Computed example of a mutant assay.
Amino acid sequence: MNHSPNDLIMLFNGLFREAFRTMLVKGGKEPEYLPAGGADDVAQVVFAHGYYSSALHEISHWCIAGEHRRTLHDYGYWYCPDGRTSAQQKAFEQVEVKPQAIEWLFSVAAGSRFHISVDNLSGGGASDEHGFRCSVLAQAEDYLCDGLPERAQAFFDTLKSFYGTGASFSKAWREDARRVVPLFFAKEHYEAN
């Protein structure tokens, strides 16, 4: 399956440009969110290097940002770059659970490969990688059970329609969950026997 970021730009902008005065834009080195500068401007969700997965991740952040946060540069969140301390990494992982859960669901809906990101290669790595993976999985399962936030649900449904994954989503989700969080499922199998 071909995964062009241009498709994501078309789908996102078709859904949200008019209704939310927001557009998805290919960027350079760093992703960022730029709020609208004035009444006639549009906000920009900028993803890094034209990468498909970066676009899905940045869309995920936008989909959970409330109305006030969407008026702030990068939604008003702090960002500590790669090389975080253990405490900084733990805080990073806590705020990344929801966007990564949504990104994961978007990825499966698009038929693309998802990768958990602890985003701390030159630091000490994950604070608790297995725990983080399990938290992202649990959040994604909650979204599947209780529903995604409204904008995320609209984009999720659009991805499934565009990529033709609606009928196969449940099976693909189960397979990908086992791939991304294998120890969770190994433990579940062990406890069942």
Rank of each mutant, 00 (worst) to 15 (best):
G123C: 10
T158R: 01
C134I: 04
D157E: 15
F169N: 04
S135V: 01
C134A: 12
A154P: 00
D157A: 12
L159A: 07
D146M: 07
G125P: 01
S135E: 15
R151M: 12
I116Q: 01
L159F: 09
E129T: 02
E141P: 00
F155H: 02
S127E: 14
N120M: 03
T165I: 06
A167L: 08
T158H: 00
A126R: 00
I116W: 04
R113N: 11
Q139N: 05
A140F: 13
L148C: 09
R151V: 05
D146S: 10
T158K: 04
F169H: 07
S117D: 15
K171C: 10
I116T: 07
S117N: 13
A152G: 04
E150Y: 05
R113Q: 14
G166P: 00
S161V: 05
T158S: 02
L144Y: 08
L121F: 11
L121Y: 13
S117M: 13
G166I: 02
L144S: 04
K160A: 13
G164Y: 08
G123W: 10
Y143G: 08
E150K: 02
W173R: 01
G166F: 06
T165L: 08
Y143A: 05
D146L: 13
R151C: 03
F156H: 14
S170C: 08
L121H: 11
Y143I: 04
L159I: 10
G123M: 10
F169G: 05
G123P: 03
W173C: 03
D146V: 01
D119A: 12
F114S: 02
D157N: 06
G164D: 05
R113I: 13
D142R: 15
G124D: 09
A126M: 02
D142N: 12
G131Q: 05
V118E: 11
E150S: 11
S117H: 09
F132K: 05
Q139T: 14
F114Y: 15
F156K: 09
G164S: 03
L137H: 12
T165V: 06
A167R: 04
L137I: 10
F114C: 04
G124H: 05
A154F: 01
A140V: 12
V118W: 10
H130E: 15
A138N: 06
A138Q: 10
G166S: 15
E141I: 07
D142P: 00
F155M: 04
L137S: 07
R113W: 09
L148T: 12
K160L: 10
D128I: 02
P149T: 06
S127T: 10
S122C: 11
F162R: 07
E129D: 10
A140C: 10
P149H: 06
S170Y: 02
K171V: 14
D119Q: 03
Q139H: 09
L137F: 13
G131V: 09
L144C: 07
D142E: 14
A152F: 05
A154K: 12
S168Q: 12
